[in-house]
Design a binder for these strands. Structure first.
Lengths: 222, 222
DNA sequence: TCTGATTTAGAACGCCTATTCTGAATGTGC
DNA sequence: GCACATTCAGAATAGGCGTTCTAAATCAGA
């Protein structure tokens, strides 16, 4: 069951245009990105663009699928064979995502921009939920590994923890879209990960010692 | 320093129109809500509408300010004098917000719809961040109370915990916008609150006993 | 180089929406 | 009841956008 979007993505010459369009949609949103913008950014002829994709919506669907595949690969490769342990792998992947967000002053393309399109097209929001479920499931497997190693907070199951991580990431995205800084987002994410990790007095003390009065460490941004 | 929007809100005859417009913007977003929609929903004359507010953007700013005031009151009254303790107050307020979201299939008006407008108008996104900071600060005070009672997980400070709650709520909103169900959202929120609460073996055992294999409780929605 | 197909750039079209305009309807003070 | 201001409904305007059309330019093959 390969979708129209997936067929488009198998065409090598379309990879660059899709990536350029992705960048636009991600930064500006769906409505605010005009075909004119896409024509300029891709360098592709308007006529050729319509020939290749069909229209703006179909182009966005291709972009979405491409983003999804990319993101899925990122998560699966990092989480399936984590050298530094599953928690470290989650941190690594998530911090990468946060960087992507703050670089663009945007949230998650899949969730935020797609939610815009989901108003027209129910299939899009269903696709988004299935994507979230896949990522959540990958997180869950990582947390299950962590549980085996005794690295997971026993107050929570891998399944719940994974859902919490997803929500946290989406929340961080919403903050990014409204202009929150990288350091603030990292602090939020790290709090979440800390609570998910096995609680120990030593660990807590360690954290409190490093962050007296828990003021945020000021750091030069970008 | 009273803004134009605040002056508008002090006019009693404009309260109903603002609320009707709020409902529209919340459910449909800014771009997708036309002035025609507003005219129909408010029953207000188009000419009168422009006379009263100035234009679509100004109308939205008034809606935003109204939402902000409402939400702030909700949080401040619930959290400033919590009968069942601060954690319970946070739960109550948050579950109310989740209901608002799922009723509309939307997230947070302030963050999600305003982020759309924030692309045109930098002042809007700054307003959003200041709103988030006010709510976060209210949460922080509640968590500080909880800390005094020994109800806060010692691994986290009230400040960090408050930021985490905000991000969690925004994430839950993003899920709601994409069609996630009420029960799923409540589960995510409750996981977050559980981790924020003081950890005790008894408490964890209690949770695990109630939720064997931590399957989500199926419940009729809406 | 010539011919026929393909690709290009950009004009043209049709639709939608925010905003303004206009003449009719309604209200107000006397 | 009358003069006048206000309010109304809906038409008109202006601009933007996705999409399609067209005539010129380019390319491919012999």
């Amino acid at each position: 069951m390969t979708s129209h979007a997936e067929i488009l993505l198998s065409e090598p010459t379309l990879i660059a245009p899709v990536n350029a369009a992705k960048e636009l949609f991600w930064r500006k949103g769906y409505d605010e990105t005009s075909i004119e913008d896409v024509v300029c950014a891709t360098g592709m002829n308007r006529y050729a663009l319509y020939n290749a994709f069909g229209g703006k919506l179909e182009l966005f669907l291709a972009v979405l699928e491409s983003y999804f595949i990319e993101r899925k690969n990122l998560f699966l490769t990092a989480l399936s064979d984590p050298q530094g342990g599953p928690i470290a792998a989650i941190r690594e992947v998530s911090e990468y995502c946060i960087t992507e967000m703050t670089d663009r002053g945007a949230g998650c393309l899949m969730c935020d921009v797609a939610a815009e399109v989901g108003r027209y097209d129910k299939a899009v929001s269903e696709r988004v939920l299935s994507y979230l479920e896949e990522i959540r499931s990958a997180d869950e497997m990582a947390l299950a590994q962590a549980e085996k190693c005794g690295d997971l907070n026993s107050a929570i199951s891998p399944k719940e923890g994974a859902a919490l991580l997803i929500a946290n990431m989406l929340g961080v995205g919403a903050m990014a879209r409204n202009g929150a800084g990288r350091q603030e987002l990292l602090t939020v994410f790290n709090s979440c990960l800390r609570l998910l990790s096995r609680q120990s007095g030593a660990q807590n003390l360690e954290h409190r010692r490093r962050n007296p009065k828990t003021t945020t460490v000021k750091q030069v941004q970008n």
